[in-house]
């Protein structure tokens, strides 16, 4: 269901737990689907013994993809015009992530209604792992 501009208010928020207790297997699954097989994300031996990290960690793009699920669940399928993020902190196996989108602006231009969102995804400790913006087409 698409959103309606007339029913939205700046400051409205939408949120969703996009992953609970992130599994290493999901990192492998994302590597296989996306084509990014970086051992930092898929190979605990390399990540810990060679690269010096405490564990493998998630592809930034996996966090963006999981956060994207909130966006499409919120605005409807095929409604996004823009979606951009900044990766703020690493995401580790075992993390639980909550994505939150807040209505920042409601626009009407050339007969097209759009909504701008501010996005923030945080882990179970309240650390912000991703911030971003999105713009979506909405109904009048």
């Amino acid at each position: 269901m698409a959103l309606k501009a007339s029913e939205l208010t700046v400051g409205d928020t939408y949120s969703e737990i996009v992953v609970e207790d992130l599994k290493r297997t999901q990192l492998v699954q994302y590597a296989g689907a996306s084509g990014d097989y970086n051992p930092l994300h898929t190979d605990e031996v390399f990540a810990t013994q060679v690269a010096g990290y405490p564990a493998v960690f998630a592809h930034g793009m996996l966090t963006m993809g999981m956060t994207g699920k909130l966006m499409t669940n919120t605005v409807g399928d095929g409604r996004l015009k823009k979606y951009g993020v900044r990766f703020k902190a690493q995401v580790w196996p075992g993390d639980t992530l909550e994505a939150k989108a807040t209505v920042a602006a409601i626009n009407s231009e050339d007969g097209e209604n759009t909504v701008d969102f501010e996005i923030e995804t945080t882990n179970q400790d309240g650390v912000v792992v991703l911030t971003g913006q999105a713009t979506a087409r909405v109904d009048a």
């Binding site: 051992p39 190979d43 390399f46 013994q49 060679v50 690269a51 793009m61 823009k82 993020v85």
Partner: peptide, 29 residues
């Protein structure tokens, strides 16, 4: 990546190297 050894690239074992990370990603549809 690891196999018989923790990495197949001995250059990586010298350490001190940083990491290539993704900082931002933006899509316009």
């Amino acid at each position: 990546g690891s196999g018989k050894n923790p990495t197949g690239d001995p250059e990586r074992l010298k350490g001190g190297g940083g990491t290539g990370l993704h900082a931002e990603q933006h899509f316009e549809y």
